[in-house]
Amino acid sequence: LMQLTDKTCRWPQGDPLVEGFHFCGNDTAETSPYCRYHSRLAYEPATIRQRASLRSAERIR
């Protein structure tokens, strides 16, 4: 934790209660706390969320 900076990925790896837990630590994108790979996992485009929301609403009807 002490080795993380504004330029290192803060994606957790493993269980925080188990020895060996760590953060990714790869270089981050300019505007993200995560590297490119983990940013893609963390942030879902709005269009995908909207489509999922519409599908859910259609099922309820």
Rank of each mutant, 00 (worst) to 15 (best):
E58A: 14
K7P: 00
G25I: 04
S39M: 04
A42P: 06
R61C: 12
P12E: 10
I60C: 11
Y34R: 09
Q3V: 02
S32Q: 01
Y34I: 03
E58L: 14
M2Q: 12
R51I: 08
G14R: 13
F23E: 08
R55L: 15
V18A: 12
Q3Y: 01
E19R: 03
F21A: 07
D15L: 09
E44F: 05
R49H: 11
G20N: 03
D27W: 00
N26K: 07
E30R: 02
I60S: 13
R40M: 02
V18W: 07
Q50G: 00
L17Q: 15
R61T: 13
K7Q: 12
L41T: 07
S32F: 00
A57I: 10
A42M: 15
E19W: 02
H38A: 00
R55Q: 14
L41Q: 12
P16C: 11
T31I: 10
S32G: 01
L41G: 06
C9L: 09
D6T: 06
D27K: 04
L17D: 15
C24N: 05
F21K: 04
S53Q: 04
A29D: 11
T47P: 08
M2H: 10
T28N: 02
A57N: 06
R10V: 12
C9A: 10
Y43K: 01
Q50T: 04
Y34L: 15
H38F: 01
S39W: 02
R36M: 04
E19N: 03
K7R: 10
Q13F: 08
C35S: 00
I48C: 05
Y34T: 05
Q50K: 06
P33I: 12
P12D: 07
P33E: 14
G14D: 10
F23N: 10
R55I: 12
I60M: 11
W11K: 13
N26D: 06
S39I: 01
A57D: 11
A29V: 04
D27R: 03
A46D: 04
H38G: 01
S56V: 09
T31P: 05
E58N: 12
E58K: 15
D6C: 03
G25P: 06
D15Q: 12
N26M: 02
S56P: 06
H38E: 00
Q13A: 04
E30V: 01
R49M: 09
F23H: 15
H22R: 15
A57L: 13
C9E: 06
R61W: 11
G20T: 02
A57Q: 13
Y34N: 14
P16A: 13
Q50F: 03
N26Y: 01
A46R: 03
R61Q: 14
L4Y: 05
R36Y: 05
I48Y: 08
L54R: 15
A46H: 02
R40Y: 01
E44R: 13
T5R: 06
W11C: 14
A52V: 08
T5L: 07
L4M: 15
A42K: 14
R10Q: 15
C35Y: 00
D6G: 08
P45C: 08
P12F: 08
L54F: 07
C35Q: 00
V18S: 10
E19V: 02
E44P: 07
A42S: 14
F21M: 04
G14W: 13
E58D: 13
